[in-house]
Simulated scan of single mutants.
Amino acid sequence: MLEKLLMEYITNSRNIISSEGLEGIFHYLEHGEYEMSFEGLVIELYSIGKYPIDFNFDKWRYTAISLGLDTESVFDDQFWNKFNDWGSAYSY
């Protein structure tokens, strides 16, 4: 279920993030490191200030919490704050 959801997020984001970023995201996904894959995807997106197709911040926030990223992150110790700022700034 989680892998399928992450694939949906990646598919909806693939046209706006770098191929290098996608490579890293897929690497972690393929190794079952879902929290690292998701965190990497979100960092790619908030770094360029863009949003994927069909973005639903509530759904993405639920995913982040499910992965424990609200309490601990791997790549960016300010992840949770940056993620919330980025997601909250989205307008349709």
Rank of each mutant, 00 (worst) to 15 (best):
L2K: 09
L2W: 10
L2F: 13
E3H: 07
E3R: 03
E3A: 12
E3W: 01
E3L: 03
K4Q: 12
K4H: 02
L5F: 15
L5P: 00
L6K: 02
L6M: 02
M7W: 15
E8D: 11
E8T: 08
E8P: 08
I10C: 06
I10E: 03
I10Y: 14
T11Q: 10
T11I: 03
T11F: 14
N12M: 15
S13M: 05
S13D: 05
R14Q: 04
N15C: 09
I16E: 10
I16T: 12
S19G: 05
S19K: 13
E20M: 05
E20G: 10
E20F: 06
G21T: 04
L22P: 15
L22M: 12
L22V: 04
L22E: 02
E23L: 05
I25S: 03
I25W: 02
F26Q: 03
H27F: 05
H27V: 00
Y28F: 03
H31Y: 00
E33K: 00
E33N: 09
E33Y: 04
E33S: 02
Y34Q: 09
E35P: 12
S37E: 00
S37M: 00
E39Y: 07
E39S: 15
G40I: 15
G40H: 10
V42A: 07
I43V: 01
I43A: 03
E44T: 00
E44F: 01
E44D: 14
E44W: 00
L45K: 06
L45V: 06
L45Q: 01
Y46V: 08
Y46E: 04
I48W: 04
G49V: 15
G49Y: 15
G49K: 04
K50P: 01
K50T: 08
Y51V: 07
Y51S: 05
P52L: 05
P52T: 11
P52H: 08
I53S: 04
D54S: 10
N56I: 14
N56V: 15
N56G: 10
F57H: 02
F57L: 09
D58C: 05
D58W: 06
D58A: 15
K59Y: 04
R61E: 02
R61K: 12
R61D: 14
Y62V: 07
T63M: 14
T63V: 09
T63P: 01
A64E: 02
I65N: 08
S66C: 13
G68A: 10
G68E: 11
G68S: 10
G68Y: 11
L69M: 03
L69C: 11
L69H: 05
D70T: 12
D70M: 12
T71D: 07
T71E: 10
E72V: 05
V74C: 12
F75C: 04
F75P: 11
F75L: 08
F75W: 08
F75E: 09
D77E: 13
Q78H: 03
Q78E: 12
Q78I: 15
F79N: 03
F79T: 08
F79H: 14
W80Y: 12
W80G: 13
N81S: 06
F83T: 02
F83K: 03
F83W: 14
F83E: 00
F83C: 11
D85R: 07
D85N: 12
W86H: 14
G87C: 00
G87S: 02
G87H: 04
S88C: 01
S88P: 11
S88H: 07
S88L: 06
S88Y: 08
A89P: 13
A89M: 08
Y92R: 14
Y92S: 07
Y92H: 04
